[in-house]
Amino acid sequence: MAEKTVKFIIQRQDNENSAPYEEEFEVPYRPGMNVISALMTVQRNPVNAKGQATSPVTWDMNCLEEVCGACSMVINGKPRQSCSALVDQLEQPIRLAPMRTFPVVRDLQVDRSRMFDALKKVKAWIPIDGTYDLGPGPRMPEKKRQWAYELSKCMTCGVCLEACPNVNSKSNFIGPQPLSQVRLFNAHPTGAMNKAERLETIMGEGGLANCGNSQNCVQSCPKGIPLTTSIAALNRETTIQAFRNFFGSDQD
């Protein structure tokens, strides 16, 4: 009896500027295998389905338990993490492609810098440094902590940006990921001291208002983060901020 194999059709690209092409691979089946273990097999023995020697396929990975976000790629048309993509649950042939919303480095590896730049832009942190001990911060209500915790599960994987129709080369929209982090850090009692600054940043070019409510992000988020609720909540916050900026006098 012939050995059971799994067929992969992988969209490859040799460098940042070269044209993509498809290459097929047949990988021996093992029970419980995931996309990454199949890619590792290809890496050990880089021979394509035609039996020709080829370069090993490259991809990013780190934690292997769906908390780091590094191994995201488009699997059978859907962006998701390759570590938690079990071969038994996928239709074959399995098609792999890089998330083209991001610049492709090589094969399935993409440059996710724009999301980290966006986090810096919106100041997705809580400033606590000082020249003296500032003492303990204000306490956070438990109920608020519970929903804020959900937002903190974001692993900057990029799936929401890949799914969003308004994040593309024609638009400068920063995407759902940094926006939800603004809601998270504005919810924190100490982070709230810089609330207006974060809101004003996302009221700038490429900010919040670019959302077109397709809600693909919330449907695609592997962590189940309520991204569209965050966006709607920020819509209200920025409405109030805009009125305060124009009509109000007490700024903070």
């Binding site: 799914a163 129709p165 308004n166 593309n168 397709s214 809600q215 693909n216």
Partner: peptide, 21 residues
């Protein structure tokens, strides 16, 4: 301008709201 800066993807993401979009 808004309509033509979108890159529609209902074939990949066939959710109700994406269709409405």
């Amino acid at each position: 301008y808004i309509a033509f800066t979108a890159k529609n993807n209902v074939s990949r993401f066939g959710h109700f709201r994406n269709w409405m979009f």
